[in-house]
Nucleic acid binder design. Sequence first.
DNA 1: TTTATATATTGCAATATACCAATAAAGACA
DNA 2: TGTCTTTATTGGTATATTGCAATATATAAA
Lengths: 109, 109
Amino acid sequence: MGLTKTEIYTKEQNKIAAMAKVIGHPARVAILQHLLKVQSCICGDLVDVVGLSQPTISQHLREMKSIGLIGGSIDGTKVCYCINKKTYEEFRDMFGNFFGQNLNPEDCC
Amino acid sequence: MGLTKTEIYTKEQNKIAAMAKVIGHPARVAILQHLLKVQSCICGDLVDVVGLSQPTISQHLREMKSIGLIGGSIDGTKVCYCINKKTYEEFRDMFGNFFGQNLNPEDCC
DNA sequence: TTTATATATTGCAATATACCAATAAAGACA
DNA sequence: TGTCTTTATTGGTATATTGCAATATATAAA
């Protein structure tokens, strides 16, 4: 049905999935990488850097903003985007915990 | 169009996105969490633990297997699944690098 | 006030994903 | 052999996602 049954999962499971999902598209990876490099930039820069249309970039930015990964501040007709440090560190902690566990030395399967 | 333009991104960007995408669904998060806890189990256990139908679990397992995050070994009519340690550590490194960078102390936006 | 610039929103088409019922496949066991 | 158990596959439906053209919105500049 294309509809995830969120109600059968824990809050943590849904949160982790939502955080991973926003990284799960190469355009959003490219946007994050650019913001990591230049600290902040406007929407139009990302259109040039990534190579998608302006509406498409705008939509990806909205998704990243809605989960709090980036912030945007209006500056005239332009909007300056940058990474939200607090959320970025939340992502670091979450993925760090999730993939920081010790597994048995040898695979069983 | 529902069709990601993978050709405009770097190999790394596509790889990172693919890795994140497989974590981007709560059922797959739940499967991973269970495998982390019990080390290995069969498909039927995951059907009980997660609460989705057997075909749906089977499909999620296939996605996780296709990217190498888990392995499965046939044991009679059952299939024993467990986490692939090498890939798991690849995930750790990738997310560690991606979210381990230093940002400016204050947000600009 | 008109025009230019930058971004967001709307509307749409095409593909992808999530889910399950039904069924197939294959080994275990009587 | 026939039945049971377990998992994979098929087929179908419904929703989600990706992408862009066209348009709306809003500020800047002439």
